[in-house]
Design a protein around this nucleic acid. Structure first.
Length: 153
DNA sequence: GCCAACGTTGGC
DNA sequence: GCCAACGTTGGC
C-alpha cells in the first residue's frame, strides 16, 4: 500500500467534477510523461490512496483524497483522434500511455494549501511537490508526509 | 551521443 | 502574463 499525490488543473478537472461523476469515479487519463507513465503502469496498486491536488490555480494544494480502484491499463485517449491527448505514435498493440481509475474517498472541508505546506515544510521532509521546478503530475508520498499533511487538514 | 531549440508545467 | 525548470526533439 503506497501513497501518492495526483495533480489536476481544476479548470480541466476539479474535485467538484469528481464529486459529481458517476460513482464518484473517473479514469486518470492524458499523462504524457514517461516517469509518470511508469508509476501508472507499474507501481500504483488497487487500494492505494492519493492526495487530489489542484494545480495552476489561485490556491494550489490538497483538496481531497482519492483511492485507486483500477490498476494501470492502456490510456484510451491516446487512441482517440478527437481527444486533445491523442498520440498518433502510440501503437495499440504496444501502448505507450497508461491510465488508472480513481474514486473519491474524502473531500477536505478546507484544503491544505501549498502556502500552508510550505509554512510547515519542516514536518514534511523533502516532499516532492514542494521541490522547486517539480513538474511531475504524480509523485509518491511517504507515510510520514501523508500523516503530516492530514494533520494540517 | 551531444546539446541547442523548443514546448510544457505550474507557481507567482 | 511572466518565466524558471526541465523533458523532449532533432540536427549533427
Amino acid at each position: 500500500m503506497q501513497y501518492w499525490l495526483m495533480k489536476s488543473e481544476p479548470d480541466t478537472f476539479s474535485i467538484d467534477h469528481l464529486a459529481s461523476a458517476p460513482k464518484r469515479r473517473t479514469l486518470w487519463d492524458g499523462v504524457r510523461n514517461y516517469q509518470v507513465r511508469n508509476m501508472l503502469r507499474d507501481q500504483m496498486k488497487k487500494g492505494d490512496l492519493a492526495f487530489f491536488w489542484h494545480s495552476n490555480c489561485d490556491s494550489p494544494g490538497v483538496y481531497g483524497i482519492v483511492r485507486i480502484v483500477k490498476e494501470g491499463y492502456p490510456d484510451p485517449s491516446a487512441f482517440d483522434p478527437k481527444s486533445r491527448y491523442f498520440d498518433a505514435d502510440s501503437d495499440p498493440a504496444a501502448p505507450t500511455w497508461y491510465s488508472v481509475d480513481v474514486e473519491l474517498d474524502t473531500r477536505l472541508e478546507k484544503p491544505v494549501t501549498l502556502e500552508r505546506l510550505k509554512a510547515n515544510a519542516g514536518k514534511l521532509g523533502d516532499m516532492l511537490v514542494l521541490r522547486r521546478g517539480n513538474r511531475l503530475s504524480i509523485t509518491p508520498v511517504t507515510p510520514q508526509q501523508w500523516r503530516a499533511v492530514l494533520a494540517l487538514a
